[in-house]
Design a protein around this nucleic acid. Structure first.
Lengths: 201, 201
DNA sequence: CGGCCATGTTAGTGCTGTAAACATTATTTG
DNA sequence: CAAATAATGTTTACAGCACTAACATGGCCG
């Protein structure tokens, strides 16, 4: 059971049991592979080969392929959250816009990982339930909370969050699928993702 | 070459040469499979089995798996365009909003197909180059053209199209990946996709 | 020290996409 | 109309894949 869930293995960080820290190595190598190819084409055997371990060793740490992918997605989500937090540090309008920029930029810099996070894997949907404060939606909500005027209703804020999230997510996805030429991303975001369009009241 | 591209086979509709109209059957069966499972899990052999043809017969019509998927995506895109056109028929604000609704609803009714259309397949990106007037972006542009005031600049219209497309696309994708509970879609779209937020000047 | 459990390996199964060679039918042409 | 040719489909084969079962090995705790 400890090997079946997607939490970061507790005893792993100590390092070194039987033949090295395979779980961590699997995730690290998996993430590396995702930098160069899609999640679909990611092969367990290839990862095992690269680590220098037998093809079936992985099953001591993940019950199946999808579990590894979920772990990779969780890692990616955490990274995205970190970058979003850092970008939004300034707070206010500026911080909010920077968060959106960070979101799109993360997608462009890690297309396969970003796609994996928002794949149709049922586990992917549960990711932000596991760690709600790492959900982009949550971060946006916080950032919007002290951005909206006090007269804004809860419904307005909620709609604002959804609008903002959908906007940056759609922008990211359309860029990744080649529908939008990513000529000048910063300018693009400036044009498209203006705070005013969120109608926060 | 005639069998390698993604155009609809010209002579096929006549029906019946060697052992039936395989190309059409492959696409039809592929689309049917996509109603119940993802594109990743779609198997050529399974399709062939269902049609009652040998596993390799497909290679007389498509050079490889990705080519079939591209053809399916093209079919899906055409269908999406049809539904968008029909929805936007009314014109004006109302037609524009209905187009957005149709976009999201199509995604929800055909999740695997919608994902396939906007997958990372290089061929998918070229789809709307093949048939530009079937591109959702193009349809939105047209709809926005006679919606925006005459004082709106080209840049404003362009940004408006992008905003609208990103908004509905992001909404659709977030719903498909389970990030947004699809409780009441119509209301959701009303809240999120309001024409006013497009800043058409 | 001895047993146990976590971790790893080897061997094997059935699936997959795809290539090569062959077979059959439709179409074109002499 | 018959023979040649092109289009379409089949059989066989291969390598890669995820995954299972049985066995091996090493570290940890009594």
């Amino acid at each position: 059971m400890a090997a079946n869930d997607n939490t970061v293995n507790i005893r792993a960080p100590k390092g070194g049991y039987h033949h090295g820290d395979l779980r961590v190595a699997l995730i690290a190598t998996g993430l590396k592979k995702l930098e160069e190819s899609s999640a679909e084409s990611l092969s367990l055997r290839e990862i095992a080969r690269e680590i220098g371990v037998s093809a079936t060793a992985i099953y001591r740490h993940f019950p199946d392929r999808d579990s590894l992918l979920s772990a990779l997605a969780a890692e990616g989500l955490a990274q995205l959250a970190r970058e979003q937090k850092a970008a939004g540090k300034a707070g206010g309008k500026e911080g909010f816009t920077e968060m959106g920029r960070a979101y799109v930029r993360f997608a462009m810099n890690n297309p396969a990982l970003f796609r994996l996070i928002y794949s149709s894997l049922p586990a992917a949907a549960d990711l932000n339930c596991v760690n709600p404060e790492d959900s982009p939606g949550w971060l946006l909500r916080q950032s919007i909370a002290n951005l909206a005027g006090p007269k804004a209703s809860d419904a307005q804020r909620k709609a604002g969050v959804l609008r903002a999230w959908a906007l940056v997510h759609g922008l990211a996805m359309l860029i990744l699928s080649g529908q939008i030429a990513p000529k000048d991303i910063d300018q693009l975001i400036n044009e498209v993702v203006s705070v005013d369009s969120l109608k926060l009241g």
